[in-house]
Write a protein that binds this DNA or RNA. Sequence first.
DNA 1: CGTACTTTTGAATCGCATCAAATCTGGTGG
DNA 2: CCACCAGATTTGATGCGATTCAAAAGTACG
Lengths: 203, 203
Amino acid sequence: MNPFPKKSATAWPTMLPPTLQQHAEQRSFDAGATLFRQGEVPRSIFYVLAGEIRLLRRERDGMEVILQRSVSGFFAEASLETEHYHCDAVAARASLVLSIPIQAFREALDEDRSFCRRWMSLLAREVRTLRAKCERLCLHGAEERILHYIESEGMAGMVRLGQTRKAWATELGLTHETLYRTLRRLQQQGIIRIEANCIRLIR
Amino acid sequence: MNPFPKKSATAWPTMLPPTLQQHAEQRSFDAGATLFRQGEVPRSIFYVLAGEIRLLRRERDGMEVILQRSVSGFFAEASLETEHYHCDAVAARASLVLSIPIQAFREALDEDRSFCRRWMSLLAREVRTLRAKCERLCLHGAEERILHYIESEGMAGMVRLGQTRKAWATELGLTHETLYRTLRRLQQQGIIRIEANCIRLIR
DNA sequence: CGTACTTTTGAATCGCATCAAATCTGGTGG
DNA sequence: CCACCAGATTTGATGCGATTCAAAAGTACG
């Protein structure tokens, strides 16, 4: 059932200082499992080793918005500062996660200057990514958003999609139908080239 | 011409440690003045004392997107980590700004633990704000975005707009026409109440 | 008092969401 | 190994809502 053996060979995150590694507990989640729910009090910081965790918020009408997708690394970084979670965390696939007690984490930030620097750098990177995403979502037109995504998330005019197109559509603030159609049109016009889950910008 | 006297009575930010206050230089900008441009190398961290600074990026078609609006406090926080600015900074009105050499700032973060904590807390808050904004922009429909804004940016179902409605429309990813129309409709339906630059959610 | 910008409203258009349905895919269990 | 199922992918038709273009009235500021 669980695809991850207890003693996993997965690379331990180099970012984590030794002190914290002692406190870190490895946990596995089946697809669909909930790590935490909106409103709960944060007790741990999580680090994805394998699989995929999604932060999502459910709207009035039942629609759910994906706030963050994590395939590797920390997620819900802001929960370090908050009294309550602002969203749910759900395993999109079977996943392996490090769980670090929040108290130990705070102490490590206080004591380990190098770790603290890396943490700030991580937060700053998150801010930049989110700003780029906001900029993209402010664009009207499916085409513009897709091209903006390739340019800002990809390297050298090429992105590797680590998700289904349906999920990508949600991230772009579009319906999946519109995404499919626009992709097809862009390819027909010779603006992009699609191979498996790589999309390349021509020119 | 310049509305701010050299020796301003503006409250010095309590957040800034004494060491940094020595390095901080007070500068004033006329409306429309540019603080920095996309691509330039960050040499200072800025702190708004008065006025309004906008971070904006210009798109291919000449349209500009407002990435951040700062009326008070730090802005372009992520520039601490980057080689180049990713956007322009422009004074929307005559503004008074503290300019802190980036090197001194980094040293203060390293040496002053309390300041470092507050800086991380500030970054985390920024992450949460930006996530909320992304969530909002993913909503289809002008009405939903407006209500989401009031609920998440306001307090007790009420927001005070510190900007023109036109600018607000841009922040919501809408045209100003749509914003005006939707506001009128919402008010007619008795869902919101508009007074000057306060908008209140009924019930 | 004039200029620039915001606010407001109108009409026409276009693009995206929506509903519907068929096909394809990967994973499950018999 | 195959049948089956849930979900992703793909395409079509339709309607609504946001954009767009246009223009007038209001407002702030020098």
